[in-house]
């Protein structure tokens, strides 16, 4: 029932749940969320997350051995193997020389076949770039549990999207209000629809807005598809930039982005 912009929850929520928020700020936050259903829902969600982790703790894997240590150990093993082999060969009784002399090697070494790789002309490099671009629509997983999206336009848009009706999806998603919870997701799926339809400039502009909104569930995917748009536009600099940023987020697209970055480079 307050006019909330969410900044208080952003600032306080995690520390409040962990009991690390100073008492004065904790009281201020409590007075706020008692009258703000949105922030109360955030508190409840965070409490559910904590309760879930308490009941089903995540096993922490042992950290990988750092390279200097691992490298040292590998070097030691390799050195021991070399010493072992050398010692074995030194002390092994030499076989008697065969009675017949071994003929010299027969014939010269055949020359390498000519390389089948074509020289890289600028145009073929560009074509190769655009062939790398993945312009297929990412799959949208509709929530299967209780409570579909509250926004009918978003829901209709995503139904159309799931049926590969990009025009219908764009039309419905364009009606999602800017302040709606699904606004950013709407922008993202609009962007990929535009990309899929070949409107690369429009897709780039839309996906950039998603990226500019900062940390969000769609940011990593937006960066990845911005890289795809750049590839399709044969802009290797932009593609490398967006792929590197995708990788830096270490999310679901990291591996794919790495593969593509290697190819682009």
């Amino acid at each position: 029932m307050t006019h909330c912009n969410g900044t208080l929850a952003d600032r306080c929520l995690e520390r409040y749940i962990q009991g690390n928020l100073p008492e004065r700020e904790a009281r201020e936050f409590e007075e706020h969320f008692f009258d703000c259903s949105e922030c109360l829902a955030q508190v409840e969600a965070m409490e559910a997350l904590t309760a879930g982790l308490v009941r089903h703790p995540v096993k922490i894997a042992k950290a990988p051995i750092p390279w200097p240590v691992r490298g040292g150990a590998l070097m030691a093993i390799a050195a021991m193997l070399v010493i072992g082999i050398l010692s074995y060969r030194t002390f092994q009784p030499k076989p008697a020389q065969p009675a017949v002399a071994v003929s010299p090697k027969s014939g010269p070494v055949s020359p390498q076949p000519p390389s089948s790789t074509q020289p890289f002309s600028p145009s073929s490099a560009s074509n190769a770039l655009s062939q790398l671009a993945d312009l297929t629509l990412p799959v949208f997983h509709a929530p299967s549990l209780r409570g579909q999206s509250e926004n009918l336009h978003f829901e209709n848009g995503m139904k159309a999207y799931s049926a590969h009706d990009c025009q219908g999806a764009e039309k419905a998603l364009s009606q999602v209000p800017a302040q709606d919870e699904e606004a950013l997701a709407s922008q993202f799926y609009t962007g990929v629809c535009q990309m899929h339809g070949g409107e690369l400039a429009a897709a780039q502009a839309t996906l950039r807005k998603v990226d500019a909104a900062g940390d969000s569930p769609q940011q990593e995917a937006a960066l990845y598809y911005l890289a795809q748009v750049a590839l399709a536009r044969q802009d290797s600099t932009a593609a490398r930039h967006y792929l590197a940023r995708t990788i830096s987020l270490h999310g679901d697209f990291e591996q794919q982005a790495r593969l593509e970055l290697n190819k682009v480079q």
């Binding site: 949105e38 969600a45 929530p143 409570g147």
Partner: peptide, 13 residues
């Protein structure tokens, strides 16, 4: 939050 909200938030965002 999105899936467990049974009623719309009653405040301005």
């Amino acid at each position: 939050r999105r899936l467990s909200q049974t009623e719309p938030a009653d405040h301005n965002v």
